[in-house]
């Protein structure tokens, strides 16, 4: 039964991911990416990562994708968008990656090292509480760095999208 649920999520994820690349209208691409984000969140729930599932929906589907849709509708993109001439390169790289996946799964016979000692202490506590404890103790410095990255992105976005910053300065 869990395998069946996984296969459902995986099939929807792969199909909607292919639709993101294949559809010509950017709005339809963004909406199929929305469906994919929801199913990835469902996959996280089956993996007992409930906090990440909630974050996936709130941040990806709620913030990032709305930003995409906003820009698509702001720019009024024409839909006669054709494919690039880099098709052979894409085909080559895709074939290399695909054979890598097939060879790795075939040669190792679909076996990964047995799971290590399960940290049962973390399993008893809630997922959110456990993540919070790890995040604010072991990964405190990367967490602060993440805030710095967000600050830099915020300043960069404001400066990039500001209209005629040089002219307003000179006038």
């Amino acid at each position: 039964m869990p395998t069946l649920i996984f296969l459902y999520f995986a099939a929807i994820i792969v199909v909607t991911a292919a639709l993101v690349v294949a559809l010509r209208n950017p709005i339809y691409s963004a909406l199929s990416l929305l469906v994919m984000f929801f199913h990835v969140a469902g996959l996280y729930v089956t993996l007992h990562a409930e906090f990440l599932a909630a974050i996936q929906i709130i941040v990806y589907a709620g913030a990032i994708l709305v930003l995409y849709l906003f820009v698509v509708m702001l720019l009024n993109v024409k839909r006669d968008d054709r494919y690039n001439r880099q098709g052979p390169v894409a085909l080559f790289l895709g074939a290399v990656l695909l054979t890598e996946v097939v060879l790795l799964t075939a040669s190792h016979g679909l076996t990964v090292a047995s799971p290590g000692p399960a940290a049962d202490g973390e399993r008893v506590a809630g997922n959110t509480e456990a993540i919070g404890e790890v995040l604010y103790s072991t990964y405190l410095f990367p967490f602060e760095m993440a805030s710095l990255i967000l600050l830099a992105a915020m300043i960069g976005a404001v400066i990039l999208s500001k209209k005629d910053i040089m002219e307003s300065k000179s006038s």
Binding site: V14, V21, L75, Y83, N84
Partner: peptide, 16 residues
């Protein structure tokens, strides 16, 4: 990942 890589290479629309 494969689908994403192919999409980056073959599409011409920056948003896609």
């Amino acid at each position: 990942f494969l689908i994403g890589l192919v999409g980056v290479l073959i599409r011409r629309n920056l948003i896609i």
